[in-house]
Amino acid sequence: MQLHTRIRRGTLATSAAICALSVTLAGCSGTTKDSAKKDSGTAAGNNATANPDAELKKGLKLAFLPKQINNPYEKIVDDAGVEAAKEFGGTGKEVGPSDASASSQVSYINTLIQQRQDAILIAANDPNAVCTPLKNAMKQDIKVVAYDSDTAKDCRQLFINQASSEEIGRSQVRNIAKQLGNKGEIAILSATQNATNQNAWIDFMKDELTKPEYKDMKLVKVAYGDDDDQKSFQETQGLLKAYPKLKGIISPTTVGIAAAARYISSSSYKGKVVINGLGTPNQMRKYVKDGTVEQFALWNPKDLGYLGAYAAAALASGQITGAEGEKFKAGRLGEYEVGKDGEVILGSPAVFDKKNIDEFDF
């Protein structure tokens, strides 16, 4: 898959380049390996040390807890993680709520603790609401890996980030600005108000818009569709009615961009309002081909789930503790290095348009 090739180029960059891109929620400060290991051991409830030569344990039990169980994007991620677990002799499953509210994941974490899972992988709906049960899990030597949307840093050992949050946020603005000639009113259609990843990306979008080249662009509203198709559809309609001069919408969520494109495609706004953001090729193909959407971006969600499974296995097997500088192998994806605050970056997002969209099937 050509997307995989693009992504790996970003992933295999030097540690310095990764650090430069990884200003996700904090800058590249002078945290040492030793202090990072100490922090990681504290988070895990012990003073664990890594054994990079350890073999992956057989029979590991991994549980994926997405933001919501019926989210098509997260289904792709979790299914890939479940399949990856089979490669190293483990088992995986997906469990989760049907809604994306802040506290909806708590009862599932408690159940997974009772089931003695070896690792819980979570895409957090809220960075803090899930912390108490996740800390309880780590005290019982259940490894915790956040993916897609992070928890507070002391509530997990690793965060598997799709790409640098800074790169995702700033590139969203750069992409839509090119389409608009750096002029006009824009809005953002996000997921939930507490979604860690969305908020990090939006902060970088807002910062990017302060640059002189965007002086003729104005962010008029950040709307929230709660990763619900119908609400996202209605929020799109509301934005267009409330802001008649609106020229573009950035939706950094696969549910939101598909809903926005569906509304625009059958309205008088088609060809007049630009839709950009993050989506999957299979969701967006028809809107690209009918001219509703010119381009959008994403990483390979299958690779995200695959990487998450191998990272969780490396933790549960003692190869790594989550300390900065540790390295582990992720099957067909190759070697990865743990960065600051336990962050592991999958790679750089790819842009999809009419020229290349048929090359991808996910």
Score class of each variant (00 low, 15 high):
171 S>Y: 00
13 A>E: 11
296 F>V: 05
98 S>A: 14
359 E>L: 13
179 Q>N: 06
67 K>L: 03
133 P>Q: 13
8 R>A: 12
103 S>G: 09
311 A>L: 06
83 E>T: 12
349 P>E: 04
303 D>W: 02
26 A>R: 13
111 T>G: 03
23 V>S: 10
153 K>C: 00
285 R>W: 01
217 M>S: 10
68 Q>E: 08
1 M>T: 12
185 E>C: 02
174 R>Q: 14
107 S>T: 11
284 M>V: 04
84 A>H: 05
241 K>R: 15
287 Y>C: 02
35 S>A: 10
117 Q>W: 01
81 G>C: 08
358 D>P: 06
277 G>Y: 06
337 E>H: 03
121 L>T: 05
284 M>S: 00
196 T>D: 07
90 G>C: 08
196 T>L: 03
171 S>R: 12
142 I>H: 10
239 L>E: 04
245 K>F: 04
342 G>H: 11
307 L>Q: 05
204 F>P: 00
186 I>C: 09
125 N>V: 03
286 K>E: 10
53 D>F: 10
234 Q>K: 13
330 A>Y: 02
360 F>D: 04
144 V>E: 07
76 I>H: 03
98 S>L: 09
56 L>Y: 15
235 E>F: 02
40 S>Q: 09
68 Q>T: 03
33 K>A: 14
20 A>I: 04
44 A>P: 00
20 A>G: 14
69 I>F: 12
41 G>K: 04
37 K>V: 07
279 G>T: 02
248 G>H: 07
222 V>M: 04
62 L>Y: 09
109 I>Y: 02
239 L>K: 06
320 I>P: 03
132 T>D: 13
70 N>R: 00
183 K>N: 11
221 K>Q: 15
312 A>C: 13
244 P>I: 08
119 A>D: 01
111 T>K: 12
351 V>H: 11
278 L>M: 11
143 K>V: 04
183 K>W: 00
343 E>K: 09
6 R>N: 06
34 D>E: 15
121 L>S: 08
182 N>T: 05
63 A>D: 07
19 C>A: 14
320 I>Y: 01
294 E>Q: 13
341 D>F: 13
18 I>W: 03
350 A>C: 05
177 A>E: 05
153 K>R: 11
35 S>E: 15
28 C>R: 10
113 I>E: 07
128 N>E: 14
